[in-house]
């Protein structure tokens, strides 16, 4: 499952693969800036991103949520899901709105790539009792907006509103909110650098969210 290609020297130095070398102050500074931009109440120029790029991003985000819906029935879907993410990525569920600086305040979840791998492997053990039975989910989202990251030609930001219906053990519930994304062209692939999940009730008590939102 390790996606890094460790040299012998790296193996010796880092016990926990892949090492999390990118989650440093500069990364947090960037997250705080991006987070504020994603949440801005502004009118953006819809024509600023060309139709082909916009379509590619919409397609990627559709696959992202569809693979998560499939994870409950087929664990392999999570492994495909992870390939959509950049090596240096973050999956972040703030515990407040607007999202506070994650260096100051606890988040509901804050994962780097390694912890996403941990969670995928944990769900695959068949022993994660909060997911026995597994949550089946159906995600709907709409209102996709896409704009360019300031000063970059290889990176875009996006957001949409979602509802997520979960059914588990005979009970259904609805989660809702908006997701913010950063997407970057890396080599010949467009990949997700950040997924920020902003639940409308993130200040209120949560239920069993041990699947991926």
């Amino acid at each position: 499952m390790n996606t890094a290609t460790p040299s012998v020297a790296q193996e010796r130095r880092y016990n926990h693969q892949p090492p999390s070398l990118y989650v440093v102050n500069a990364f947090y500074d960037w997250l705080v800036e991006v987070s504020a931009d994603l949440a801005q109440a502004v009118v953006r120029d819809a024509a600023a991103v060309d139709a082909a790029r916009r379509h590619a991003i919409a397609q990627l985000l559709a696959v992202e949520s569809r693979l998560l819906d499939q994870g409950a029935g087929a664990h392999a879907a999570y492994e495909h899901w992870l390939t959509l993410y950049a090596e240096e990525c973050a999956y972040w569920i703030p515990a407040d709105s607007p999202a506070p600086d994650p260096r100051q305040t606890i988040s509901l979840e804050f994962h780097d790539r390694r912890r996403l791998l941990d969670r995928v492997v944990r769900l695959g053990t068949g022993l994660a009792f909060s997911q026995l039975p597994a949550s089946r989910t159906a995600r709907q989202w709409s209102g996709l907006e896409v704009w360019s990251s300031p000063g970059r030609t290889d990176e875009w930001r996006a957001r949409y509103s979602f509802t997520l219906v979960e059914s588990r053990a005979g009970h259904s519930r609805v989660l809702a909110g908006w997701n913010g994304f950063v997407l970057r062209q890396i080599g010949d692939r467009l990949r997700i650098v950040l997924k920020q999940i902003n639940l409308i009730d993130n200040q209120n008590p949560q239920g069993n969210n041990s699947f991926f939102l």
Binding site: R103, S107, E109, F110, S130, S210
Partner: peptide, 26 residues
Amino acid sequence: DAQVNTMRLRTQEDFPVMGEMDDAAN
């Protein structure tokens, strides 16, 4: 310093989603 506090938070976010939810289910 700030780095220590940041790492306290990242440590504290580990167990709720990977452990506490299993307790809660039980």
